[in-house]
Amino acid sequence: MPTDLFRRRLIKGFACIGAGAAVLPCCLSHASYAAGTGAKFALKEVADGVYAFGGVNELMTDANQGAICNVGLVVGDEAAAAVDSGGSMVEARAFLAAIKEVTDKPVRYLVNTHMHPDHIFGNAAFRDIGATIVGHRNLPRALAARGDFYLQSYHRQIGDALMQGIEIVPPTQTVDDRLELDLGGRKLELRAWKAAHTDNDLTAYDPATRTFFAGDLVFMGHLPTLDGSLLGWMRQLDELAAIDAAVTVPGHGPVPSAWPQALEDERRYFEVLAGDLRKAIADGVPLDKAVQTAGLGERGNWALFDDYNGRNATAAYAELEWE
């Protein structure tokens, strides 16, 4: 049972710590990760038959193998479902190897929580083992519009080696509203949301353990990124909070986290950002000026604030000026 510090030292640049996630007590599985680097991909059992890996609060890089988001696994009597495939084929293969160490059940489903590369760049590895890839009804459209751009821009960001084998693989089964995945004696409840983080957010809920895989509808520590609708996200926070979960696996942040307290930080950030922008818009301050100061009061509360706040403010300004 390695301590956080120990593992951080051991696995060099691929530590599974979220901001503020001091304790990761039971890493049950250590699959060989990238050969030669000594890196490990550790799945943690967060509830009975429910596992998750915690990504780092960083931008995707060659050094962190693209493993920046949380991915998960739910194991039934007959089959397992993975939640998100990770940010590279290297990560996806390590994930699959780690899955083999905790269950001999086949991975029948891969659930994509949304379109972003850190969650879907490993899809091809799951397709290749015959998993059905499940996504929001809008996911195919979103990937069609962005896939080539993602391949191009991430090529530069994470390099040739880590890009190897990465394909944009759209879901073969889509969710309009709700869908139950039967894993044998266990049902995983999928739910498609209205535009929020993106316009293709999908969550997975395991009623047996009341574990809620929130995807990027929940950010903790890592600044939320806005690529859908700020107003839609804010409007759905209460509906999210009403989900009868004990714990959540957020898209980014400590694994697991208490529910619904996990929503508090992002709710506060959204309110500050929207408040600042509404004032600027009312005062006639143009977009390029407004985004330089909006949300700054939240700067000390988040990792990657400087990487994403300006972008969030830009997108939110364009949305809020229609109010």
Partner: peptide, 14 residues
């Protein structure tokens, strides 16, 4: 360039 901010429509339905 870069990152996941693709030059694409964010909320197509809307």
């Amino acid at each position: 360039s870069g990152g996941c901010s693709a030059p694409a429509v964010k909320n197509t339905d809307e």
